[in-house]
Design a protein around this nucleic acid. Structure first.
Length: 457
RNA sequence: GAGGUUGUAGCUCAGUUGGUUAGAGCGUCGGUUUGUGGUACCGAAGGUCGCGGGUUCGAGACCCGUCUCCCUCCCCA
């Protein structure tokens, strides 16, 4: 025996039944995007390292899969940097390409590069795999699909509202029983940092606040202390831990809290508009919350931020996103604001599986199998199969004339509804036997009118 | 990147204080008189016990290393 076959950690094979369920999931997401007028694009699996590096913060950079240079390009290795102990520089000299880490940054590159070929506001969706050198865990893979939708070139808050609608539609259609869309605004977080006189600690504050539901208020305070925030600043922040009431009430409270911060108040205004608008339009199943402790790590967000969680299921967020004001600037196109979301297809899949929400009919089955009992017989089968297919019925002819028993077992395993038997006897009478695999009943038809008779069944 | 945990047939797992040819169920394949599946009965194939080293007369069991699985943190979909 050879070595036991295996695949890299954090990756998976998909069996036919898995693929059927995955395509169902993708088709729901795709159809919702298309209903909202989004256009599909695709970008390469790998990008130039320079496109990706530095866009996701230090943590993100660490998780980017880098592609080793091949052939002569290996000679570009910076051995001096190696000798000097400068491993990052040495690594960069060895690798000029990297697997994409998400779909947003490649999209920003795409927009800047094709700015003359697209009409703004440009709304695109993109369903492709991304790769992260993360440690695999529950709901966490090294290769997984994101289903992004972004609207770029419009700073209207109606875009934010539309994304809430899209999330609501997708998850409602997938029959997820209870889910919550959490919303916050980066400007509010900036305002908080300003109000407590710790504007330079913005990142530390947001990261700490983000852990609220995990480590509790005491944990957040400890974290803030360890980041060197003054006691006065911490006292100023702690009232935020216990914000209560409807989103509107919370926003009112926050408005007072942020009264001295221009940015903060702008954030409040934006969110208030989004909440009012979506309330006026109405949603299907989504619960929408304002959550000041929602931060999100990605450095490029500047306005609204979203995160979606399924209630009562142990799974990280299944969708996230937000507004980024100038992401395309690093690619030479400035003054263009965008907002987008990303569904984590694999996490949603796991949730649907856990809650048993996949529709029964997504499994792949075969309508008709023609049993093969010899050369002359199978020729007739092939002709009939061709006709059936042109009538929109899926069918196949068993490739070899093995024992009937085995062929029926095959039909059974394939979930076949009907089996057509044409043997010597049938051929002589110009007939065929049609077996119903569920009831076991068998009918006889003349070969010549089988097609028309079958479509009546 | 830090910590914990797991690793025996394709899958799910047994394997007693280290002791002969490592077991079961499911699945797979074959058969139960040659053209009738899903049930039943009979039978077979399939494992250098994750990999490498060590302790021992003897290791699937003990020790070290390594990889992997799953989990927590970090971060995130």
């Amino acid at each position: 025996m050879s070595q036991k076959p295996s695949i890299p950690k954090g990756t998976r094979d998909f069996l036919p039944s898995d693929v059927a369920k995955r395509s169902y999931l993708f088709s729901v997401i795709r159809s919702v995007y298309e209903k909202h007028g989004f256009l599909p694009i695709e970008t390469p699996s790998f990008e130039l390292s320079s496109t990706l590096m530095g866009k996701y913060g230090d943590e993100g950079d660490r998780l980017i899969f880098r592609i080793l240079n091949s052939g002569d390009k290996m000679k570009k290795a910076d051995l001096q940097a190696l000798d000097a102990g400068n491993l990052p520089k040495f690594a960069s000299s060895l690798s000029e390409k990297a697997l994409r880490y998400d779909l947003t940054v490649p999209f920003a590159r795409f927009v800047a590069q094709h700015q003359n070929d697209i009409t703004f506001p440009f709304k695109r969706y993109q369903i492709q795999p991304v790769w992260r050198a993360d440690r695999p865990q529950h709901g966490r893979y090294q290769e997984f699909y994101q289903c992004d939708g972004d609207s770029i070139g419009s700073d209207s808050l109606l875009n934010e509202v539309e994304f809430i609608q899209i999330i609501d539609s997708v998850l409602t259609q997938l029959a997820i029983p209870a889910f919550t869309i959490k919303i916050n605004n980066r400007k509010i977080l900036s305002g908080i940092a300003e109000v407590c006189g710790e504007a330079h600690h913005l990142i530390a504050i947001t990261v700490a606040l983000d852990k609220m539901d995990k480590i509790g208020s005491a944990g957040v305070i400890t974290e803030l202390e360890s980041k060197g925030l003054s006691q006065g600043a911490i006292d100023k922040i702690s009232p935020l831990f216990s914000l209560k009431g409807t989103p509107e009430e919370q926003l009112d409270l926050m408005e007072k809290y942020l009264s001295s911060s221009v940015v903060g108040l702008k954030g409040i205004d934006e969110l208030r508009y989004v909440f009012e608008t979506i309330t006026a339009i109405g949603v299907q199943e989504a619960k929408i919350e304002f959550d000041v402790t929602l931060a999100r790590g990605l450095n490029y967000y500047t306005g609204a931020i979203f995160e979606v969680k399924v209630d009562n299921v142990n799974m990280g967020s299944i969708c996230g996103g937000g507004r980024y004001d100038d992401l395309t600037a690093t690619f030479g196109l400035s003054g263009v604001s965008g907002v987008g979301i990303s569904f984590g297809a694999d996490r949603i899949y796991d949730v649907l599986e856990e809650l048993n929400l996949f529709p029964k009919n997504v499994s792949l089955s075969l309508s008709v199998l023609f049993v093969n009992l010899g050369q002359k017989e199978s020729l007739v089968s092939m002709q009939l199969a061709k006709e059936l297919r042109s009538n929109g019925i899926d069918c196949e002819v068993y490739p070899s004339a093995v024992k009937l028993q085995k062929q029926l077992k095959y039909a059974n395993d394939r979930g076949c509804a009907w089996v057509v038997i044409i043997g010597e006897e049938e051929l002589q009478n110009q007939q065929l036997s049609l077996k119903n695999m569920e009831s076991g009943e068998q009918l006889k038809f003349a070969i010549t009118n089988f097609i028309s008779e079958f479509s009546k069944l």
